[in-house]
Design a protein around this nucleic acid. Sequence first.
DNA 1: AAAAAAC
Length: 516
Amino acid sequence: MSPADSMIAAPEAGFAAMGLRPEILRAIDEMGYSQPTPIQAEAIPYVLKRTDVIGIAQTGTGKTASFTLPMLDILAAGRARARMPRSLILSPTRELATQTARNFEIYGKYLNLSMALLIGGVGMGDQEKVLEKGVDVLIATPGRLIDWFERGRVLLGGVEVLVIDEADRMFDMGFMPDVERIVSLLLGRKQTLLFSATMPPEVRRLADRFLDHPIEIKVAPPATTAATVEDFIVEAGEDKKKTLAKLIRREGIEKAIIFCNRKREIGGVMRHLQRAGLNARDLHGDLEQHHRQLTLDQFTKGEVDFLVATDVAARGLDVSNMPCVINYDVPLNPDDYVHRIGRTGRAGRKGRAFTMVGPEDRKLLANVERVTQRNIKRLVVGEAGNDVIDDKDPGRDADMARTGRHRLARPSEPVPDADNSSPSPVAAGGRRRRRVETERPAAEPAPVVAASTARQPAKAASPARRDGAKGGRGSQEEKRSESPVLGFGDDVPAFMLQKVPARLRSRNVADESDED
DNA sequence: AAAAAAC
């Protein structure tokens, strides 16, 4: 095709140009989508070519469809045998597995493929019949899948495509033994796809043992927060629950997920909100699966306004109307910050995220800011006359001096009623709010998007593992470039543009040495 | 400092 042709054809480029089957295109069209997101534009062609893929892209930018759509296309060509699934998707939580299953249903509705969802906490009867007949798509959490395998009801030797969703989580110490065992049961040639918004270098190295000449696609550097989420730090007073209720009231928050680090904290926080007249529910792994599913459904439908949850809800969950995330605690694992706040600001929508920081959370916060390479704005929430934080904790100044990052407003500094110079939704509206931002030491990073592999010559012999090689997130030597998001030409939707410091940008090199 | 994942 000549350049002129491609220009004329531009409006039709998109999912159709990728060669997906008409049945899939029709389902995509019915969902109202016409253009792939950057990660979809990049990953789908490689999945269709049966290449192993590591896909890194920010939360809410369509990673699930990046594997779902091409897998449906691949699977439509064959036929399943009894107890021998042809593909397997592993998820870290039951809720995420369920959601992924819905995605396969939606996009596979015009294809005659069968699917089974194997998760714990639910009866095994329904799953059994489908499995017995043979499934094209098996979606599972590790424990229940192993259970089925040990009962001899599922054989994994016929799996042609393996997806490890939220891969870095699946490779952590708690999950890795199960994942290794499951992967060891997949015999012969298979294609492996790993996806996440985060991928610490040390975890990335672990991934190598599962991959064969992978293409590494990074639409943004690992641990890049979604550009559509505006996040804030909130100084938590002695009474954290009170601060939470106050934050919700003063910021006019009508719906949010509230993340706590511990299960045992959740009931108390929920009840405090309920006593304050808010419609709140709990969600964590000690609750019955029926309760978990019901609560999540109600929250999704808008029948529940506040979900107080552990990190069981941190990854992957896609609730369409989710204006706000609140971290009642700073997450212990800094990458989880990216995932938690990524529950809002999805698919181009705006979102706000507030993180409550007590004295004991400062180190954790420093980790978050290091990993995300960002300085998060400070927000002061308080009643009139009582709204400036008493900043005499000696630990703070030492901390801040060491990290060279932040300084809270001094008590003597004036606190504006609203910051009208900011486009922030916090400042919008006549509500009585107070906000103070810290100085931002470095220049605000310009919107930059990481270039990706596809257009690079396939000359490099070594896989593109800049992160794994050395430096990783801490590297400072990358040069800034103005590359557009691949797959979008010049029409990059604004929401895809990244808040990424140039020094963090990753380059990728295709390793296609075994192709063609 | 935790959570998740089978029964």
